[in-house]
Nucleic acid binder design. Structure first.
Lengths: 183, 183
DNA sequence: ATAAAGTTTCAGAAATTACTGAAAGTTTAT
DNA sequence: ATAAACTTTCAGTAATTTCTGAAACTTTAT
């Protein structure tokens, strides 16, 4: 299968960005192509369209599945696996965020938790531990916040994002109304 | 200069995470060490403490400066450059977010803008362009939102993040009060 | 049980990225 | 102008990551 120039340039761009987004070139291309394609694609189609080896496609799919970005589709009377994006653009982006948060913040959080348990032996360690505590708190706040945002329905979240810094005004308003009482 | 085990393990961890955070091993270590160190450090101190070549330190500092994560400090009567983190942990995290957003989303946004200008030649292109439009809108919303969040003062932002999904309730409340009228 | 159609694995090759160290460059002092 | 103290650059090397392709494996049909 060969691609129209516009689609091809998008797919190649996904390849170039791939490593910045957390995977690698071919995996980026594969994902880009799957998104651009209305019909699910077989591993062979991916391999031929992108000119990458069959083995590489197999590894790439495994990786994309570990990110929960692709799912398999079957056609009756055909035993090939066909792959397609695992949800809307919105959901895909969500998964990338979440997965990256896990890979980029969770390991550090546990290291910091451990480091903070036993206490400092001297001034240098005292300073260091204070900084570690700051980092820990920040990461924890972000992690919690990210989790809660993901529990909001996409359309509410869109409203919230469109509101932007206007949120602050709304929060101030709340303070005004509720000053004194709390729930 | 040599490090206490606790500090060393944090610094090494920063090295291991470095590439996930968008830089590389030594740059991660350098940043980790600078954060852990109360006094600014010279390039030679970085080089000796971390056992990396002087040249590598120089390149690393350049890179960290391009991320706006370190600044230079001078001591009267000493012409060495001493380096220190460019702000609080909070500010550093902010810079990393912003810089990554620029590197990971802006190029794609411009590609998509261009691709959406001229119109589709056939059904496949029509489908592809629709997906590109979805991606474009999502990236644009996120970019805008990120920009606005950065304009909020750290303490307001902390309040907001601590509130988490509770924001939704507040928003609903606003709707109730203002139904019919706007702002 | 065998063959056909498909998928996965993995050792080695290729490509990319990071690092070193010596040479070139810069700044300050005299 | 020269030297001393320091920094940067960059060609070559080392380390790491990615990719290939052939062999091994799995599943389904006969």
């Amino acid at each position: 299968m060969n691609l129209s120039p516009k689609i091809e340039s998008f797919v190649m761009h996904c390849g170039e960005m791939g490593s910045r987004w957390g995977f690698n070139r071919t995996i980026g291309q594969m994902m880009g192509l799957l998104i651009m394609s209305e019909a699910p694609l077989s591993a062979n189609e991916l391999s031929e369209t992108l000119n990458i080896s069959r083995g590489n496609v197999s590894m790439g799919i495994k990786e994309l599945q570990s990110w929960r970005l692709v799912t398999v589709h079957h056609i009756k009377g055909d035993r090939k696996d066909y792959y397609l994006p695992a949800g809307s653009i919105w959901e895909l982006a969500n998964r990338v965020f979440e997965e990256r948060r896990k890979r980029e913040m969770d390991p550090t959080l546990s290291l910091l938790r451990a480091a903070m348990l036993d206490d400092a032996a001297n001034q240098k360690e005292r300073y260091a531990q204070q900084k570690m505590a700051e980092i820990h708190d920040l990461l924890e706040t972000i992690t919690q916040w990210a989790g809660e945002l993901q529990s909001i329905s996409p359309d509410k979240l869109t409203t919230l994002m469109k509101l932007g810094s206007g949120v602050v005004k709304v929060l101030d308003m709340k303070e005004k109304f509720l000053k004194g009482g709390n729930q």
